[in-house]
Deep mutational scan, measured.
Amino acid sequence: MQIFVKTLTGKTITLEVEPSDTIENVKAKIQDKEGIPPDQQRLIFAGKQLEDGRTLSDYNIQKDSTLHLVLR
């Protein structure tokens, strides 16, 4: 499925993911596309910070959802 990741600069990254993918996995995909190390990434969805060990389906993230990427 496709999800979107919006950065603070207003750029939107499109990712191909599975509901069973972990947040860690998603961060690795963002690193592949953007070169941002996962340890600098914070992903936010519906006002919640997403934890590495959980999956997209744990957070009820569905296709065409938009996550927000904050760098630390």
Rank of each mutant, 00 (worst) to 15 (best):
T14S: 06
A28L: 14
Q2R: 06
N25Y: 14
A28Q: 03
D21R: 05
R42M: 15
G53Y: 07
Q40V: 10
E34K: 02
I30K: 00
D52Y: 03
H68K: 02
P38S: 08
E16I: 13
E16F: 11
T55H: 12
I44K: 09
N60G: 10
G53K: 09
V70H: 05
P38R: 04
N60A: 11
I44T: 08
N60F: 13
E16G: 04
R54M: 11
L15S: 01
E51I: 03
D21N: 13
Q31S: 14
E24D: 12
K6V: 15
L15W: 01
P37I: 06
Q31L: 07
V26S: 02
I13H: 05
L67K: 01
S65E: 05
V26R: 00
A46I: 09
K6S: 12
I30E: 00
P19W: 07
E34R: 06
T9M: 15
L43P: 01
A46V: 14
K11I: 15
I36N: 11
I13S: 05
R42V: 08
Q49S: 06
T66M: 03
R54A: 10
E51Q: 05
I44R: 07
Q41T: 04
Y59I: 03
T7L: 15
I13L: 03
E24G: 14
D39S: 05
D52H: 14
L50P: 01
H68F: 07
S57K: 07
I13K: 02
T66L: 03
E24H: 08
V5R: 00
Q31A: 14
D39M: 10
E34D: 11
K11H: 12
K27T: 02
Q31V: 05
G53M: 05
A46N: 09
T12N: 06
G47W: 07
G35K: 09
G35D: 10
H68W: 02
A28K: 05
Q41M: 06
G47H: 15
E16K: 13
I30Y: 05
H68N: 06
K27Y: 04
I3A: 01
T12L: 04
F45M: 09
K11T: 07
E16L: 15
P37F: 14
L15Y: 04
